[in-house]
Amino acid sequence: MINFIFLTVIFLIIIGLFGTMFKKNLIKLAMSINIISNGVNLFLISLGYRQGGIAPIFTNAPNLKMVSPTPQALILTNIVINLAVTAFLLSLSILIYKKEKKL
């Protein structure tokens, strides 16, 4: 079961890399960077997985088994960073489009 997740991770990353390397369109490039980022996030999430664990919220955690919280903290920051990067990339492509009339 575990390696099924890693397969999807590898699959996502390869699609993303393919997108960045061969697609000329700037928007597609930004999208494929997003795909790679999601792939890496999925990989990090799958590390913290516990059999039958619940979301790591401390209130009802003492008796039930929690999923380990650290990778989730990593993913939160990575999502925020990825948001900033994609926003910047898209605004740059808007400015380029304004000047060059083709992406």
């Binding site: 960045t20 790679i36 990067v85």
Partner: peptide
């Protein structure tokens, strides 16, 4: 703008590689 775009897309991929390596170590 074009060179900023090239720079940022390259380093976005670079940082994701870095994160992937860190994930493996973790």
């Amino acid at each position: 703008f074009k060179s900023a775009f090239h720079y940022l897309s390259l380093f976005a991929v670079g940082s994701l590689f870095l994160l992937f390596g860190i994930g493996i170590l973790y």
